[in-house]
Design a protein around this nucleic acid. Structure first.
Lengths: 376, 376
DNA sequence: GTCGACACTGAATCTGGGT
DNA sequence: GACCCAGATTCAGTGTCGA
């Protein structure tokens, strides 16, 4: 239980990082306002859905559906819900790093209001993600389609924000080497994963599955990043963040939820560094300029490069530029120029003849890179 | 081309139904205001998405993506888009029958604003439906998840609206006898279905697949209903409506789209009556009250009914009520009362003794129904 | 006629680091 | 903030052409 932290203590603390890996007890907006500017990498928010339920719902066998009827899900009007949404999103915006991103999950009851508010506040939507449930609750009355999904919005703090973390290559590799789509399939949280109290009753009515949070965190953060959840509830975000080697910050008002989340997170074993290594693509590799190949002798001045079908050719010059029919420039510029295009990746466009076949000069760059790696 | 209809002609027409199965040329809101109150059963709306694109986007092979940059998709601000959305939704509300429903399709660029506006105008969301694309365009820069779906909102005109059409059993039967979910899988519109002009260029940048409209119309309307599309475009709604034996009304500003849609709809052959019969379950079956059984002599006053295990018993009264130990009421009420439950389906709870075994009284209702069916 | 290679396309808010 | 420029980046199709 060491990770619980009353908001008053946080405000009194002189230590700047005392809020990391803690659950702050208190109101969401007040607690956010106690955190430093631009200090967290990712926010995952599962706000109240503002369900507007009529009476009780019975299954065909007359058993009663255990609906979400908690006090924290009651709002007087759409206006009240919008004001609440605006307040916590504004507080989140200040706490989020410029390179950070925010996730918000909801259903049709609230997600349209959340999305519109995000846009009004100048957040920039990157994707809307659909969580398709393998095992959703049926529609008992037969008057609608089975409500089989929830929606997450992923956004950066403004339209110009560059440099947010998206582990594209890891996602693609995890998805059988095709791009990860915006529709994800996961079971709802049940079985051993579902937190129960002493009477076997579920601790929290809307506990999210860890698999969902794992994909969110793996996609949009790096090990060591700080993940904030302003509606911490049963602490799924904290548990998964800890397991995945990230730091967490939770905000929660209700002591029962804090107790359950705290114990749950305590029991989590973080994965090791090897398991947490994120697969990256070329963008992350050491930059090797073309003239390094010339300087190292892998390419010789005067050597002729061609494209893969020998339609175009160019001569290598000693300064690391290439020339063709009066034109000259970088491998990229000249590649674009001879093809009449705006841009070109010279590394894959230009080839050299190794005596047997044409090979892209990118292969020579790989040789340099592996030499550099050995030298480390 | 007979189905095109300038808005001025519509206003001048004395014939009240002259707008049915027509494409009205003109502004969406102005045209809607020329239609009678509460006159259409279903509205399907595919409004501009308000895409905010930067410069050109190139594929990895340097080819240029043909983006949606049409004038009709340009708005000055979110406020302008919201005002536009409010105006056409209000106009739709007046034209829609109290038992009607509206569908709106969009992407994350606009759907949150549309959904919030629907709620602000007191529409009642029944479902949000995800159209999962089998073949979406990839994310070429690897900076986001592949945007692989669009969202539809299905709503009734107000929270208390009852009696809207939802062909639950037909949807369930069409879905291998499990409830139709809120996530639907369809390819994007391509191949022969995609309308092309003389030069082989697509007529409309965002033509929707007919399969999507077919499910919408089959789920939420009946043969003979009127389906309105205020952003008619290439006329998919009209073509599918006609094929499925529904009437359509289209509103469209651009003559090129009207010409293409008009010719397209002209070529559609409607399905026959037999193919259009909507599969119905018990909900749609002829209602048979318990007293009809008594009146018909299948159940006799004074007869004893029991539950399947003979734990409870009740005596049938001539008025079609049943009584047990001082309590009396409908078969449903009394069934609930004796079990101490809030509700009970008396048709399956109460049984009669046919001399050999106990059989639910629901079987007698089936006898009545088949007699009624023969009589038609 | 068949098969393979290649070109083309779809509602897209689509780079990042350095000067 | 504007500009420059290296260089990284695509899935499920349909249609065409030539062998």
């Amino acid at each position: 239980m060491a990770s619980v932290f009353p908001l008053a203590d946080l405000k009194a603390s002189a230590k700047p990082d005392s809020w990391i890996d803690m659950i702050i007890k208190g109101d969401c907006v007040a607690a956010l306002e106690a955190l430093p500017n631009h200090s967290v990498d990712v926010i995952f928010a599962d706000p109240p859905y503002n369900l507007q339920l009529g009476g009780m719902l019975h299954r065909p066998d007359q058993s009663v559906v255990d609906a979400v009827d908690n006090e924290w899900d009651q709002f007087a009007s759409f206006e009240a819900y919008d004001a609440f949404t605006r307040a916590w999103l504004l507080a989140c915006r200040r706490v989020l790093k410029p390179t950070g991103t925010i996730w918000v999950i909801g259903s049709y009851h609230n997600i349209f209001r959340v999305g519109a508010t995000l846009q009004d506040l100048n957040f920039w939507i990157l994707n809307d993600i659909v969580w398709r449930k393998t095992n959703p609750m049926p529609n008992f009355k037969g008057r609608r389609f089975q409500n089989a999904h929830e929606t997450m919005i992923w956004a950066s703090p403004n339209a110009k924000a560059k440099g947010y973390t998206f582990n594209y290559d890891a996602m693609k590799a995890a998805n059988d080497d095709v791009q990860m789509r915006s529709d994800w399939l996961f079971p709802i949280c049940s079985g051993n994963e579902r937190l129960k109290d002493g009477d076997g009753k579920k601790v929290h009515p809307t506990q999210k599955p860890e698999a969902l949070l794992a994909r969110v965190i793996m996609a949009s953060s790096r090990p060591g990043d700080i993940i904030l959840d302003p509606f911490f509830g049963s602490g799924t975000t904290g548990a998964v963040a800890k397991r995945l080697g990230r730091h967490f910050v939770g905000i929660e008002r209700e002591q029962d939820y804090i107790d359950a989340a705290s114990a749950r997170i305590e029991a989590v074993q973080p994965l090791g560094k090897a398991e947490l290594t994120i697969m990256t693509g070329k963008k992350q590799e050491i930059r090797v300029a073309f003239n390094v190949l010339v300087e190292s002798g892998l390419i010789k001045p005067g050597q002729v490069l061609t494209d893969s079908r020998r339609r175009y050719s160019a001569i290598v010059r000693a300064d690391g530029t290439v020339a063709s029919g009066g034109e000259s420039g970088s491998i990229h510029r000249l590649g674009a120029r001879v093809q009449g295009l705006d841009a070109c990746n010279g590394w894959t466009f230009w080839h050299f003849d190794d005596g047997q076949s044409l090979r892209p000069i990118d292969e020579l760059r790989s040789v340099i890179r592996s030499d550099l790696a050995k030298a480390e």
